[in-house]
């Protein structure tokens, strides 16, 4: 019991810290693309401390607070399920569909909280977030189906183990297609540029986030950090072979090496998303829906059909 508690605490701290570092990386990389100096890497941590230490906060009712808590709780739950190299508290129960659902639930929690504030911007933001969710569901579904059919199992841990022997998933053509589609979907799940219509700052002043201030926004920053970590970790595990290193003798070294390998893969995924985000202008909501229902769906469906042959 103590051992799992310690492992869980480690995972939580590691995830939050690395998540904040990822947010810092995103801001620096985007700044560098704009030929700007960019903030220090620990800037998100500073932002979160500032937000959490605000002296006065407002609330619009019970659901306004509970929605945020639920979002953070669900993200923490999701992180526990995804195998992190050799550490993994609920690794055995890490089921593809369960994790995909858990990664979508924070969005539901945030939307509940935002809408309970009664702000019209939050309403429009929620509507756009829902339509984006609807749009990404089709390619996401086909990608998950392709994965499950190719490996014949739903458990993420078994998929990671299978990739050690059969090589990374992206080397097999059907799963390469699924990876491409899933990567486009990640773009919307991160809320990065081409598909972040739901939190468009200029147009609907950050959509659902308009009413969050002080500690609520701080909690959301933490949630965003963990979510970034979880999504990149999930992608790394199921498509890039996960971090299983057995070269060293002592287990401590193995775990550290595993984490390092995972970190490299996660940063790679993150950079793809950041580059795409820095370059593309923002899609309107029906353009985004039409886009997702055209190319990524075709790619993912092709992958799923090929995987099932």
């Amino acid at each position: 019991m103590i051992e799992t508690a310690l492992k869980a605490l480690f995972i939580l701290l590691y995830a939050t810290f690395v998540g904040f570092m990822f947010m810092g990386i995103i801001r620096i990389v985007t700044a560098r693309i704009h030929r700007r100096v960019g903030p220090p890497i620990y800037q998100p941590i500073l932002d979160t401390i500032k937000l959490l230490s605000k002296k006065s906060n407002i609330t619009h009712g019970l659901i306004y607070d509970f929605g945020i808590l639920y979002a953070v709780g669900a993200t923490i739950l999701a992180v526990m399920f995804i195998p992190l190299g050799s550490i993994g508290v609920l690794r055995a129960y890490g089921d593809l569909i369960l994790i995909t659902f858990l990664l979508e639930i924070p969005m539901l929690g945030i939307m509940f909280a935002a809408m309970s504030s009664g702000n019209p911007y939050a309403g429009i933001g929620a509507q756009r977030a829902l339509l984006t969710l609807l749009a990404i569901q089709v390619p996401l579904g086909f990608a998950i189906v392709a994965l499950a059919e190719f490996y014949g199992t739903f458990s993420t841990y078994e998929i990671v183990m299978a990739q050690q022997t059969m090589g990374w998933s992206i080397f097999h053509f059907p799963l390469l297609l699924a990876a491409i589609a899933y990567d486009l979907v990640l773009q919307a799940m991160f809320g990065k540029e081409p598909f972040d219509i739901m939190i468009a700052p200029g147009e609907i002043s950050l959509g659902p986030m308009v009413e969050f201030g002080g500690k609520h926004m701080g909690l959301l920053q933490i949630q965003h950090a963990i979510a970034l970590f979880a999504e990149t970790l999930f992608f790394a595990n199921i498509f890039l072979g996960g971090g299983v290193v057995t070269a060293f003798s002592s287990s401590i070294l193995n775990t550290i090496a595993g984490l390092a390998v995972l970190l490299v893969k996660q940063v790679a995924v993150l950079l793809i998303a950041t580059f795409m985000g820095a370059i593309f202008p923002r899609f309107t909501i029906d353009q985004a829906a039409k886009f997702y229902w055209k190319w990524p769906t075709i790619i993912a469906a092709l992958g799923a059909v090929l995987a099932s042959l």
Partner: peptide, 19 residues
């Protein structure tokens, strides 16, 4: 557990004003 962690962070912050 996740909710508790979030609740702890939540209640560490300043008191909340109903609006």
């Amino acid at each position: 557990v996740g909710l508790l962690i979030a609740a702890v962070i939540y209640f560490l912050g300043a008191p909340v004003r109903k609006v």
